[in-house]
Simulated scan of single mutants.
Amino acid sequence: MLVSPEQVERRHKQPSSCPHALHLRLLLLGALMAALMVAIASFFRGSAHINTLKFDIDSSERSSKFVIEEKPAPPQFPFPSSFSSADAAPPPSITKTIGLGNYFSEHMFKVALLRSSLITRHPEEAHLFFLPFSINLLRNDPRVHSEASISEFVTQYTTKVRRDFTFWNSSAGSDHFYVYCHSVGREAASRLYDLQNNAIQVTCSSSYFQRYYVSHKDVGFPQVWPRPHEKALTPPDARHKLVYFSGRIQNSRIRQELIALWGNDSYMDVFSGSPPFPYEEGFRRSKYCLHVKGYEVNTARVSDAIHYGCIPVIISNYYELPFANVLNWSKFAVIINQGEIALTKKKLLSITTRKYLNMFRNLCQVRKHFCWHKTPRGFDSFHMTAYQLWLRRNINRLSH
């Protein structure tokens, strides 16, 4: 249903009755741009970044033009607590059971978005529109909880947005986006054609062969656990273990093969389940940390490895790595085909000390891209994800 121009004009003139109907302008501050220009010179040789000059120009243009509107929960819509925001908190019954963990990135993107530097109440200026339902909150809400109920909730919400907001109708949803880190989000969106095929999904589970994921349309962003700040990284010469991995193997043939090969290798800390020491220590004392495909192509181990200064070894075919159009992953990570897992140790031992030290230096350089802050900081995960969205701002875009 298309809304008439007269209705649009009246809607724009009337202040929103919803306190969370914020129209968000994502702008980088002048100081950030100055820092970017200083930093660019050091990125050209041996850089972990791809085409840094283009990234700089794009980021500068994005900072002056990119605008996002957050779609509010429609009036009288049930379960408003399932629309996470910087100001609203879930009810106590949900707070007791909610666990961010693997879904921390989903939560922090929304918090950072609502705390980004400038807010506008003029949706006609927006390049993109944000659908703020939270899959994680829905999963932990006893009133919804089940996958079928979550899918029904998302369908009802999107249907109301299509009915009540003309901007969806003018683009069939192609300039709208939603964020999630749980596979339930993928299934929930599949029930509505426009949401699945037109809207941009921002997801941790980004695979070239994943159902409903379209690489040129959708955005893969990093799955990050809420880890305490690491004041000082363990230096390379103090990392005495070659490899570290610990995790469940029941849902992964590749992980089972890994344990069978090196579960008893004294030079490699490879464990089925939890290690006999604190989980974080494995990252601190190892040169390389394995990310091996489990149920999904992604896990938080990639971000954990980067956080603790351990070179990621990615054994997960078809994983569309976060920010791959900006970051040259081969400069700070090792990528091994799942079919060559038996060659992992040989490949890692063949890496020269000089190359390893270069990779460690590059890893230190990109760590800031895998951090979330409640109030966004330059080049953090929020700004890197916003840049990916900005690149997609004109895909199938129609005039309002």
Rank of each mutant, 00 (worst) to 15 (best):
F277E: 06
V297Q: 05
I249G: 05
S272L: 05
R285K: 13
T299V: 06
R253A: 11
P235Q: 12
D304A: 01
G282N: 08
S272E: 03
L290N: 11
D265V: 03
A232M: 10
A232Q: 15
N264I: 10
I306R: 05
F245I: 02
E281V: 14
P276L: 03
I314N: 10
T234D: 05
S272F: 08
S266R: 11
S246F: 01
E296L: 11
K287Y: 00
L242D: 06
I311W: 00
P312A: 06
I314T: 07
I254P: 00
G273I: 04
Y279M: 04
I259P: 01
S266D: 14
A232H: 10
R239N: 03
L261A: 04
R253K: 13
R301Q: 08
S274F: 12
C289K: 00
E280D: 12
R285P: 12
A300W: 14
H291I: 13
Y318L: 14
P278L: 09
L258Y: 06
D269H: 12
E280V: 10
A300Y: 11
P276T: 04
K241T: 15
V270R: 03
Y244E: 03
Q250V: 10
V302K: 07
A232E: 15
D304S: 03
K293S: 11
I254L: 11
S286V: 09
C310S: 06
F283Q: 08
T299C: 07
S274W: 09
M268D: 09
R285E: 13
Y295P: 09
E320A: 15
E320D: 14
S246I: 04
L261V: 02
E257I: 14
T234L: 04
G247W: 00
R253T: 13
L321W: 11
K287E: 06
L258I: 08
F277K: 00
F283L: 05
Y308W: 14
K241V: 07
H307D: 09
Y267C: 15
G282H: 06
N298E: 12
F271L: 00
Y244V: 05
P278V: 09
V270Q: 04
P235H: 01
I249K: 03
Y279Q: 04
G309Y: 06
K287N: 09
A238F: 11
L242N: 01
G273C: 02
Y279P: 01
Y318P: 12
K241Y: 14
A324G: 15
G273S: 05
I254V: 13
P312I: 03
P235M: 02
A260L: 09
S316W: 07
F245S: 02
G294C: 14
L261Q: 06
F271W: 07
I306H: 10
I249A: 12
L321P: 08
S246C: 10
H291E: 12
E257Q: 15
K293R: 14
V243M: 06
V270C: 08
F323P: 10
F277C: 00
I259F: 00
A324N: 13
A260G: 07
A238E: 14
